[in-house]
Amino acid sequence: MVPILAVLTFALFLVVDYFVLKSQKKEHPAFMTFPVFNKSSLSIPINYLLSKGHIWLSKISDGQVKMGVDEFIVKAFKRIQLVDLAVAGTEVKKGDVVFRGKVGSNLINFHSPIDGKVLSVNNESTGKNISNPYTDGWGLVIAPASNNLSTFAQTAEKAGSWLDNEFKRLKDFLSLHTEDPELVGITMADGGNITEGVAANFNEKTLDAFEKEFLS
């Protein structure tokens, strides 16, 4: 019966911990309604590039680049769908709207970080909540106008420090724009950490401000 004693002890500690957290009005990460959202929540696949406007790029072959919305945005909004994607064959310039994100009933614009021609569109993910932004959640395949991205891609020396800064800016943005004190309580739970879905309830005005601040 020693194995059972050992397993029960292990289970007992986990259960007690669950209730200890509950008594402290905290949640276990496994059962969080609003999971903590910080840099360690993000995992950027190797060879993917992040643009300042939160669009990722990945070369799939010579002259073809795939793009989509990065995980920062997906986790910030929790439920976001790509809609109004640029049509195949369209020429896009850096800064043009290439697709929009639908958040509840509101829309937010995403701008191309590069010049190029749209080659294909991911119709399968259109209108569906993005769950895997770097795989099946891609939006477009583009033929970039130039392979030298330095002329049009926004620089971020290192994603780590850039993301740190994005989280700081997001916190500042929240304290400036979030009028509902209850929402601030949720978003800043757990020692000042923001939580996933922090931007889910932005109204149209706040979304516009968010777009200007983070996506342009």
Binding site: L49, T155, A159
Partner: peptide, 22 residues
């Protein structure tokens, strides 16, 4: 322990040519 450097290493400067998809 939760080294931040590794995350940094994954992202190339945006000025470089795009690498192949993993």
């Amino acid at each position: 322990v939760f080294d931040e450097v590794e995350l940094d290493e994954k992202v190339t400067d945006m000025g470089e040519a795009l690498p192949d998809e993993a």
